[in-house]
Simulated scan of single mutants.
Amino acid sequence: MNIRTKLELEEHFTDSEKGIARYILAHGKEVVKDSISILAEKTYTSPATIVRLTKKIGLEGYNDFRIRYSAELEKLAVQENEIDVNFPFTKEDSYENIMNNLAVLANQTIEHTQALLDEKDLRKVVALMKKARAIDLYGTENSLLAAGLFQNKMTRIGKNVDMRSLDGSQTFLASASAPDHLAIVISYSGETETVIRWVQILKSKHTPVVAITSLGDNHLSRYADIIIRIDTREKLFNKIAPFSSILSFEYILSVIYSCYFQEDYEGHLERKISFDQMSDKRPAHLLKDDNE
């Protein structure tokens, strides 16, 4: 997880630390030039409070923060010519501009996500999927939308994939897990308390865990056997909608599905077509392929 996201989360921050975090987010380029005493003066706090904050977000101190945050801001500056993932359109934009911007945003998100994928990790995930008696999906809110599409695809090729939409039900699912299950846990921040509780239960059950989460260090990644990173340009709260993160989740899960599908291409294709034909209620003559 990048520094900006950790500051936005304000996890276990005191009121003074929250004030510093919000000031940094609002004045990033200025802050990295300031000494710790100047930042303390601007935020009406103390150097000791600033140091405590930097350590809470996993850094060694203020100098470490300035170096790392400056590099993070430079990386974001390179992306300034790209569509803003948080505000891809303005109130002045025409419908045509909105259509174009969202199309560009989708392409950019997939390109960023593809660049983060590692073929070796994908092969490990597929190997675990083939070995698993059952695959269980875990997530909250937006991540469940992508998980639901993945579950639907996998079910159509005959692989048992379970997903529950309620937090309590997901806790029960984790409690009933076993070493021959595979857990795919989807979380943008990787810091949601319920998600961490689930993976702690899963580890106690010796269930392999695949985490699909943001760049950088987070609690979820520390419990995972395999980590798949998503495009992490999106802010947690200050945005119109989770356009980018959902696209990134969906792309990763589509890639995982496709790689798994390819391992038994003919068999999976036959099962998928058979499933679709059995579940389709249209008259039989309408289901024939055009080339038949």
Results as ranks from 00 to 15, higher is better:
Pro47Asn: 09
Ala48Thr: 13
Ala48Cys: 00
Thr49His: 02
Val51Asn: 05
Val51Lys: 12
Arg52Asn: 12
Arg52Phe: 01
Gly58His: 00
Gly61Tyr: 01
Gly61Phe: 00
Gly61Glu: 02
Tyr62Gly: 04
Tyr62Thr: 11
Asn63Leu: 05
Asn63Phe: 10
Asp64Val: 01
Asp64Gly: 04
Phe65Asp: 02
Phe65Trp: 02
Tyr69Met: 00
Tyr69Lys: 01
Ala71Ile: 06
Glu72Val: 07
Leu73Pro: 04
Leu73Met: 07
Glu74Leu: 13
Lys75Gly: 14
Lys75Tyr: 10
Leu76Gly: 15
Val78Ser: 15
Val78Pro: 00
Gln79Gly: 06
Glu80Asp: 15
Glu80Trp: 08
Asn81Cys: 02
Asn81Thr: 06
Asn81Phe: 00
Asn81Val: 03
Glu82Phe: 13
Ile83His: 05
Ile83Val: 12
Asp84His: 06
Val85Leu: 08
Val85Glu: 10
Phe87Tyr: 15
Phe87His: 12
Pro88Tyr: 03
Thr90Pro: 09
Lys91Glu: 14
Lys91Arg: 15
Lys91Val: 13
Lys91Gly: 06
Glu92Gly: 10
Glu92Cys: 11
Ser94Asp: 12
Ser94Gly: 14
Tyr95Gly: 11
Tyr95Met: 11
Tyr95Pro: 15
Tyr95Cys: 10
Glu96Phe: 01
Asn97Trp: 01
Ile98Cys: 09
Ile98Phe: 10
Met99Ala: 14
Asn100Val: 01
Asn101Ile: 11
Ala103Asp: 05
Val104Gln: 08
Val104Trp: 01
Leu105Trp: 12
Ala106Glu: 14
Asn107Phe: 07
Asn107Leu: 08
Gln108Trp: 10
Thr109Gly: 13
Ile110Phe: 13
Ile110Met: 10
Glu111Trp: 03
Thr113Asp: 15
Gln114Thr: 14
Ala115His: 10
Leu117Glu: 05
Asp118His: 05
